[in-house]
Simulated assay, not measured.
Amino acid sequence: MSADFTTTITVDASPQAAYDAVNDVSGWWGRITGTTTAVGDEFVYLVPGLHYSGQRVTALEPGRLVEWLVTGGYLAFVSDRQEWVGTTIRFDIAADDAGTHVTFTHAGLDPDVECYDACSNAWSTYVRTSLKAFIETGVGTPNLFKGDEELDAADHVGLRDRIEGAGAAARAAVG
Rank of each mutant, 00 (worst) to 15 (best):
T33H: 14
Y19R: 01
G138F: 01
V25S: 12
T88E: 09
D148G: 07
V57Q: 04
V70M: 02
V70S: 14
G99Y: 05
D4W: 08
G167W: 15
A107T: 05
A76L: 11
G54H: 13
E114A: 01
A3M: 11
R64K: 15
E42Q: 12
E114G: 11
D20A: 07
P142W: 12
T35V: 05
G27Q: 10
A94H: 14
G30V: 05
D92A: 07
A38G: 06
H156P: 10
Y74M: 14
S79I: 04
F104N: 03
S2G: 09
E42C: 08
L50G: 00
A94K: 12
K146C: 14
H51M: 11
G49C: 09
G49Q: 10
G72Q: 03
F91I: 00
S130V: 01
G158W: 15
T37S: 03
G108W: 04
R81W: 10
V22T: 05
L50E: 09
I135A: 01
G72L: 01
L69C: 13
D97C: 02
K132V: 00
T87A: 13
E136L: 00
L46S: 11
I163P: 01
D41Q: 04
W29K: 15
A18P: 00
W68T: 14
S14K: 11
T125N: 02
Q16W: 01
H51S: 10
V70Q: 05
Q55K: 08
W68A: 02
P62L: 02
G158V: 04
I32L: 07
E42G: 12
L109S: 10
F134G: 00
A169K: 07
T7K: 14
L144I: 09
E83I: 05
T36R: 03
Y45Q: 08
G54K: 06
R90V: 05
Q82V: 00
P15S: 04
Y45C: 02
H101K: 11
D80W: 07
V66Y: 08
T87Q: 07
T33M: 13
V85S: 08
P142E: 02
L46A: 02
T137Q: 01
S79T: 06
G27W: 06
A94I: 07
E164R: 08
D155M: 10
H51Y: 14
T6D: 02
F77R: 06
K146L: 13
W29I: 15
F145C: 09
Y52K: 01
R160L: 10
E114N: 03
Q55E: 04
D112W: 03
I93P: 02
Y45G: 14
F5G: 12
M1C: 11
T141P: 06
W29H: 11
Y74C: 03
D24T: 01
P62Y: 06
A21S: 12
